[in-house]
Every structure is written in C-alpha cells, then in structure tokens.
Amino acid sequence: MEILIYGIINSIMLALMALGFALVYGISRVPNFAHGAIYVLCGFLTWIFVRSLDLNYLLGILVALVLTGILGALMYRFVLIRVRGMNISEIIASYAIGLAILEGLRYGGFKGTTHTLPVFVEGSIIIGDIPVDYQRILVVLIGVLLVAFLWLFTHYTRIGLALRGMAQDERAALMLGIDSDTMALVAMAFGCMLAGLAAILLLPLGNIVVEKGYDVLIQAIAVCIVGGLGSWMGAVLAAFLIGFAQILTTVYLGSHFQMVVALLAIIVTLILKPSGLFGQQKELEERV
C-alpha cells in the first residue's frame, strides 16, 4: 500500500520534471540541458517574490512562471537558434547556460538549506493507514490535469497541432506555412514554463538548493531516454516505470540507491532498446 501510494506520487513528480524537457526535444530536437537550471531558477524567483518582496503567493507564482517562459524564449532567440541542428553544440550551449544560471545563483548567495517555499495547503490525510500530505495530493492532481491539458492542447488547438506537425517533419511543416523558428521558440518558452511549474509544485516539499538543478536534469533525461526521446506519452509511462522502481529500491535496498535507478535505467535502455519504449518513428518511416 505504501509502495503503491508513494510510487504513484513519485512517478507523477518525475513526469512533471520531465515533461518540459520532453516537449522541447520532441518539437525542436533541441536537448535543453538548461532544464534543471530553469527549474531551480523558477523556484528562487518565486522565493524572491514571495519571501523577499512579500507578494501574494499566487501572484508571485504567476510572475515567476511568465519570467521563466520569457527567459526560455530569449535563450532560444539569442543562443540556441545559432546552433540549431548541431547536436553537440546544442548540448554544450544549453548546458553552459544551465551552469551559468546555477553557479550564478550560488555565487549570488543562494546557498545552504534556508530557502523554502510554503506549501499550498497545510495538513495531511490518511489513505489506508499511510499519511499523505495535501501538497503531494495536489501534485498528483495537477500532474494528471497537466498531462490531460497537454494532450488536448496538442490535438485540438492550432498552435498545438502545428507544434506536432513540426515535431514529426519539420520541412513538411515549413511547406504548410508553419515557421519552424517561431514554433521552436514557442516550444522552448512553453517547456521552460513547464519546468517552472514543476518547480513550484515540488519545491515546497523540500528546500530550494542549487544542486537540485543537476538532479532534476538527470531524472528528466532518464525519463525521456527510457520513454523514447521525443515521445511525450512515452515519457509519462517511463516516469511511472522509473518512479516505482525508485520507490521499490528505497524500500528494499535503502534510499541512497535511489539515484542509481535513473542512471541504470539510461544504461539498460541504451543497451537493450536505444530508441526507448515509444521511439518508433523511424520504423514507421521505413514503411511504404
């Protein structure tokens, strides 16, 4: 029972961390290695607005999210657009931005374990005989809603459909008047906002530390690789796989093995099925 409940919660937390990364990669094929940094940055931005500037919590969150989105767009417009299509350069450029943000934050005095965000709702509920706090329940609910929203967005709105078209065949999308750079910019802004949203939901459960950035990045990459790079539904499924594996490891082997799970998952996937669970695009293309 404990495994089930915490497995689900952990899985959805992982899915939230990975969605932004999966979205950006799926659409523009840019691996956003600044993902973890954006996550932490959004956490600190919210902290600044709420704790230092005494803004209303909700207002602070909204402003932080918008700023994160703008930052993502700027990152694409001024840096990534120049290296688009060159995988190694994309990784180096985005990772450099991530490092600059994270170490810049550390240099700016955001270190130690004193930075926390308030939870949205205090208290906890007993499910079965396991106490679960409201924040975690909220994470699960919002996580599910977010996945549903993303699905609707990419299947029924003009921009969402254009994004999916571009994800599948950029040049064909171009022929239909879908501008690839604009769409990649939108995807980047959107992906960064998703990272920010994950941060705002998950950070109240612990404290905001710079190191979290690297951790989140690795988890996100692990989920995306296992699920098949570029596949969003694959990412959600992989989040459940890794999420439960992590909880099982914690229960039976000890919590310090938890980080190994994600890294092991990357290695095993790359050996057994390099395209990931749902990375089937190539096989389809070969038909006909």
């Binding site: 299947h155 003009r158 459909l161 254009a162 999916r164 078209g165 599948q168 065949d169 040049r171 064909a172 999308a173 171009l174 022929m175 239909l176 008047g177 879908i178 695009q281 389809l284 293309e285």
Partner: peptide
C-alpha cells in the same frame, strides 16, 4: 506559403504518426 505558394513534396512527407484528419488539421494552420 502564406502568400499562396504551397508545395506538396516528393515522397509526400505525410505526418506519419498523426491520423488523416489530424494531417489535414495541421495543414490548415
């Protein structure tokens, strides 16, 4: 394309993971 020159490319380049209906919807951007 916005001005009205639309190319229907060689080898078709259909969006292979989307349904027929969705392909048309994406085309309607």
């Amino acid at each position: 394309a916005k001005q009205g020159i639309v190319l229907c490319p060689e080898r078709r380049r259909i969006f292979s993971e989307s349904s027929v209906l969705e392909n048309l919807r994406i085309g309607g951007y």
